[in-house]
Structures are given as structure tokens and as C-alpha cells.
Design a protein around this nucleic acid. Structure first.
Length: 414
RNA sequence: GGACAGCUGGCCGAGUGGUCGAAGGCGCACGCCUGGAACGCGUGUAAAGGGCAACCUUUCUAGAGUUCGAAUCUCUAGCUGUCCGCCA
């Protein structure tokens, strides 16, 4: 959630900032109006309540002193009805504000480039040179089927479309990648954590998936539980509603989970192959930091993911997302796009975001510094999406006969 | 699934109707002590919101109720623990 005080205090600048993220200006205006209404409503209620509290205090005093309370009781009863109405008005104002505020995205950082969509993202740098082939490189699904690694049909038989089965060397590669990634991240100072893959509504509100994006989530029937779309949700919410010691920060974590997404809005994109599945594996990085640490940790996380790709020998590039392509909770995001020879294109394999205090405000993650409670900064990044890494390995290291040479760093994991 | 017990501040824990936002302890911060530290001693220390000072409001798991007044009484839900049952 954005800082509503800031919106009040510096409305023009805040509104301009949100507009860069394509937030409807009517929404911004109503946010302002609603928070002002709430403030006024509260003021009225609170002074009425203060008067009532005083009368109740007197009541006790009169009883002790043996004075008559008859007159006071008439007063108290009269004020009571009014208080109920005022409280109800306040509740309505609160609800109205929250309904909107929880659906407003985060401010982008001021230095994030303006833009409409992914075409306006800005390339930071390229790492490693794409391989040159003496033959026409195949796309990964062809290679996967030829090598017997992935069985798309049987995945559909077991569940539905966008599910697949990985077997043989494919399954071993998947497991090797997960272990390699976790070890790599751990060596960079990220503590390994294993978390639930089902979470409650509160957790998803904390990181911003709810209330706005419920259609993208798989929900367990009859339970208030959802399958996680990313390990970012449980890892970040680990510290939900806690006040941390400043000296314990930054907390840097890595975790492996399966992720589940409905891919509701993805239309017919990437239906073939394993780029966009309902269930996929991902090793995630999450950090909780002090406000002054998050830029530094952000760079560490980007470097960690990029170095991981480099260690696997995978050519990739780093791009800064423009305002229009930025996610709901992100103030800034760097995407890592891996080179896919079969598609002759760079495709997203990791996304590292700094949400600043946006998630922390929702999830109430704070730290104590000089006696004050300060909202923490939370960051998340994939390191890496396992399925897409397999795709990249297949396409980049394919031979003319369709066989695949696996990266040497994985040898000890296979 | 059944029975019983519990849920209080960063943590532990006292508190059974009226200055209780809550004793005490731990932790933490500052000061004294010390060559420096530990120990010891002293002081301070819940959160959110509003004025941004005094102060006011809200919060003792959540919701509803009783009452002039609820951490304290009643009901419901959730969670935790223990025992039993069931199943891996």
C-alpha cells in the first residue's frame, strides 16, 4: 500500500508519480477525497467518544462518592445512540478507503524510465555472446521430446493443458538445477528456507497479490488457502506483523518452491512448450532490509541472478523495466532475459524487484531504530525459474543431432 | 474427528467489572561503575491513528453481546497445546 499521508501532504507529486504507472487519475482523486473524509469522520467520532469516556469516568466517581447518577445516566444514554451512528460512519469511510487503497499500485522510483510497455524497457548490459550455430537451432519442445525429457501429452492427461511431465535426464537436470541454484545463492549469503506452498489470504494481501489479482490464483476448495504463485509470498510474509531489530537486517533468504498460476490473462501466448505452465519450479531470493540498505541489496540480488546464469554459460541481458511494464508492488525492477536460439530472442528468466515499503506497509513488517518503528523494505527476485533455465540450456547447448551438452558446473549435481 | 486447556506488550508472565495500556521478569537503549568489558546500580522502553506540543482515540486472537463502564462476564469463530481416535 502506498503512504496515504504522503498523498495528502504532497498530492500533486504523488498523483503525477502514480500516473506514470498508468493509474487512472479519477482513482487517485477519489483516494484523496476518501482519506480526507475518513480523517474528518474520525475526528468527530473521537471527540464524541472522549466526552463519553469522561462521563463514564464520572459515573464511577459518583458511585464511589455516593452521589446520584440518575442525571448522568440520562446524558450517557442519549450520547450512546449518536456514538453508534458515528462509529458506523467511520467504519464505512474506512472500508471505502481501504477498498481503493489496496488496489492502488506502488509509486515507481523517480529514475525509472517512462514507457508504455515492454518495448520501452531499457537494456542495461549484455552478458556472454549468443552462440553461433552451423545448423538451424531447434526450439526447446522439439529437443525435449526428442531427448525424452518432457512429456506434454501425459501432463495434460493428469491435469489439464499447461501441465507437463518431466522424466529421465530431464527430471535429473531439474533436480540438479534446483540444488545448484540453492547452493549458489547460499554462498552469496542468502539463507535457505523451506516454506509452505499453500498460504492464507492475509499473506497474499501482504505481498499484493490480493485483493486485485485473485483470478490469477488457484484456490483450495472449502479452505481459505491458495496455492502460491511465487515463493515471494511465504518468504516475505515470514516476518509479517513483526518488529525486527535493526541490527538483524538485512535478512536475505533463498527458497525453492513450486509455483502455481492460472495464467488467466495470457491468452494464447506460449501455449507450446514449458515457458508458461500452470505449475513450475522456481528458486527465489527475498530480502528484508532497512530503508537505507535496499538499493545495495537490490544490486546484490541482480548480480546473484546474473552470475548464476553466467556460471551456467547462458547468454543473457539485463533490462530496467519502464513504468508501464512495472508490476503492481514494484518501485523498480530489473529483468534478466536469457537468450533462446530457437526463438532467436531474449526471454524473461528472472525478475528482481524492490518494493520499498509497499509490501511492508501491508504486511506490517517493521524494524526498530532509535526507539522508532520504521517500515522495512522488501525485495524479491527469481534465481531462477527452473523450467525456463532448462529451456535455455536445451536451446543454447543443443548439437546438430539434437543431443544436449550440459553445463560443467552441474556435473557434480547429476 | 472427539474431549479438555489456553491465546495479554519484542519475548515470558501477573492481572476476574471503574485512572489497567496493563505488575514483575527477560530483552533493548542511555547513564554510572571499569584501563576496557562482564557483573552490579539507576533511568527509560507496546502498537496504530489524529494534533505532530499538551493531549485525544483505538487495540489485551477476531467478531458479536451484557453493562453507564470489559483484558476481566456471555456467545461464536480461529489458532495453539495435551490426551484419545483415525490414517500414513
Amino acid at each position: 500500500m502506498i503512504d496515504l499521508k504522503l498523498l495528502q501532504k504532497d498530492f500533486d507529486a504523488s498523483a503525477a508519480s502514480l500516473k506514470r504507472k498508468n493509474v487512472d487519475s479519477e482513482l487517485i482523486n477519489s483516494l484523496k477525497t476518501l482519506s480526507e473524509t475518513l480523517k474528518n469522520t474520525k475526528l468527530v467520532y473521537e471527540s464524541a467518544q472522549a466526552a463519553q469516556n469522561e462521563r463514564s469516568r464520572l459515573f464511577g466517581q459518583y458511585k464511589k462518592e455516593g452521589k446520584s447518577t440518575d442525571e448522568l445516566k440520562v446524558e450517557v444514554d442519549a450520547a450512546k445512540a449518536q456514538l453508534v451512528d458515528l462509529l458506523e460512519a467511520q467504519r464505512i469511510a474506512e472500508e471505502a478507503l481501504e477498498t481503493i487503497a489496496m488496489r492502488v499500485p506502488n509509486f515507481p522510483d523517480s529514475d525509472v524510465p517512462d514507457g508504455e510497455d515492454e518495448n520501452d524497457n531499457v537494456e542495461l548490459r549484455k552478458v556472454l555472446t549468443p552462440p553461433v550455430f552451423s545448423f538451424t537451432p531447434k526450439e526447446h519442445w522439439e529437443l525435449a521430446e526428442q531427448n525424452g525429457w518432457i512429456d506434454f501429452e501425459r501432463g495434460v492427461k493428469l491435469a489439464k493443458s499447461r501441465f507437463s511431465v518431466v522424466s529421465g535426464m530431464g527430471a535429473r537436470l531439474e533436480r540438479a538445477l534446483i540444488n545448484f541454484m540453492l547452493d549458489f545463492n547460499r554462498e552469496r549469503g542468502f539463507m535457505e528456507v523451506s516454506v509452505p506452498m499453500l498460504v492464507n489470504r492475509r499473506a497474499l494481501e501482504g505481498t499484493g497479490q490480493l485483493p486485485k489479482f485473485e483470478d490469477d490464483l488457484f484456490k483450495v476448495d472449502g479452505e481459505e488457502l491458495f496455492l502460491i504463485p511465487t515463493a515471494e509470498v511465504p518468504l516475505t510474509n515470514l516476518y509479517q506483523d513483526e518488529i525486527l531489530n535493526a541490527q538483524d537486517l538485512p535478512i536475505k533468504m533463498t527458497g525453492y518452491t513450486s509455483c502455481f498460476r492460472k495464467e488467466a490473462g495470457s491468452g494464447g501466448r506460449d501455449v507450446r512448450g514449458m515457458i508458461r505452465q500452470h505449475q513450475f519450479h522456481k528458486v527465489e531470493l527475498v530480502s528484508i532490509t532497512r530503508a537505507d540498505q535496499s538499493d545495495g541489496v537490490f544490486d546484490e540480488m541482480v548480480a546473484c541472478a546474473s552470475d548464476l546464469l553466467a556460471a551456467l554459460g547462458l547468454p543473457h541481458r539485463l533490462v530496467t523495466l519502464c513504468t508501464g511494464d512495472l508490476g503492481f508492488g514494484a518501485a523498480r525492477t530489473v529483468d534478466l532475459e536469457v537468450w533462446l536460439p530457437g526463438q532467436n530472442a531474449y526471454r524473461e528468466i528472472s525478475s528482481v524487484s524492490n518494493t520499498r515499503d509497499f509490501q511492508a506497509r501491508r504486511a506490517k513488517i517493521r524494524y526498530k531504530e532509535e526507539g522508532k518503528n520504521i517500515l522495512a523494505h522488501t525485495l524479491n527476485g527469481s534465481s531462477l525459474a527452473v523450467g525456463r533455465t532448462m529451456v535455455a540450456i536445451m536451446e543454447n547447448f543443443q548439437q546438430e543431432d539434437g543431443s544436449i551438452i550440459l553445463p560443467t558446473v552441474l556435473q557434480k549435481y547429476l
